Simulated assay, not measured.
Amino acid sequence: MKEKNAWKFNGFIALIISFAILAATVYNIVNTVKTGNVSSLVLAIIGVILWVIIQSSMTVVQPNQAKVLTFFGSYIGSIRQPGIWMTVPFVASKKISLKVRNFNSERLKVNDVEGNPIEIAAVVVIKVIDSAKAVFDVDNYEQFVEIQSETALRHVATKYPYDNYAEDDVSLRGNTEEVAAEITKELQERLTIAGVEVIEARLTHLAYATEIASAMLQRQQANAILAARQKIVEGAVGMAQMAIQQLESSGTIELDDERKMAMINNLLVAIVSDRSAQPVLNTGTLY
């Protein structure tokens, strides 16, 4: 099923025509009563039929709304332009909102790629772009959007870990833009059949499940400390190398391998230690 434009005619002109027919019909009825003219009676009957046909074909479309028209079970098209219109008479119409709307999913409990139970929720911004698909291809497009949104959210959540301190790895907490883009893409693939466009999808809630929240907090703290220590060690090694190179290049002192190792050891201890270094001043030997 694909949306198409239904035949329509300016409704204001149709109303003027219907009022003219109504006036002519009243005139013919009065003339028939007064004179008993059979031709006037026939014209009156024809006028009533035409007036009923025109009135049955009138429809009003509100802004950001579409009307899907069916004629005795056959889809004949949709009207998107707001206003009053005359279309095929005796049609059944169904209103479809074309406004942008938000859908807030419930908090879902799923397992991430590492098997940790997490709670996740998202907001999805959608808009109907094909009224025919929304009406005829799915039973209830709003319920369809709700179920498919939760399904896509579950699927994406199981593909990534909740958190990862490696720079090249994608995680739910650390790569919200990438995760949102993937949710949007997967939702669009699922909702195309319903004629719905996914404008945006964003995570609104992300947390570990309550039963493991305390344990995972300790794990996060340990991972954070380990990652920080790795950065500190990398910086300390670079600083020690730079200090020795500057001392040697300036020609101030000459260090043998043993003194280089001692200096590197002292610099690393002073930089890597989580406490302030206590300086020791060497004033020389007693003899």
Score class of each variant (00 low, 15 high):
H205Q: 11
F136R: 00
N164T: 12
E182M: 12
Y141K: 00
E177A: 09
E142P: 02
K133I: 00
V156Q: 09
E197D: 14
S149T: 07
I199L: 15
Q148C: 03
E146F: 05
I199D: 01
Y160L: 14
R202M: 06
I193N: 08
N140G: 02
T192A: 14
A132F: 00
L203S: 03
V138R: 05
T151W: 05
A207Q: 10
S131V: 04
N175C: 06
T158L: 13
E178Q: 14
E178P: 01
N175S: 13
A152T: 13
T176E: 13
S149H: 07
E150T: 03
Y165F: 15
V145W: 04
A201L: 10
L191R: 10
L153F: 12
K185G: 00
V145D: 00
Q143G: 08
E150F: 04
L206Q: 07
D139A: 04
G174T: 04
A207Y: 05
I199F: 04
L172T: 07
L153Q: 11
T176V: 10
L153S: 13
A152N: 08
A157C: 14
M216L: 13
D137C: 05
T192K: 07
I183M: 11
S171D: 11
F136H: 01
V135H: 07
Y165T: 09
A194E: 06
R190M: 14
V196I: 15
I193W: 10
K185M: 02
M216Y: 12
S214W: 04
E150S: 02
Y162C: 05
E150I: 02
E167Y: 09
Q148D: 01
Y162I: 02
I212K: 08
L187T: 01
D168Y: 11
E211P: 07
Y160G: 13
L191F: 11
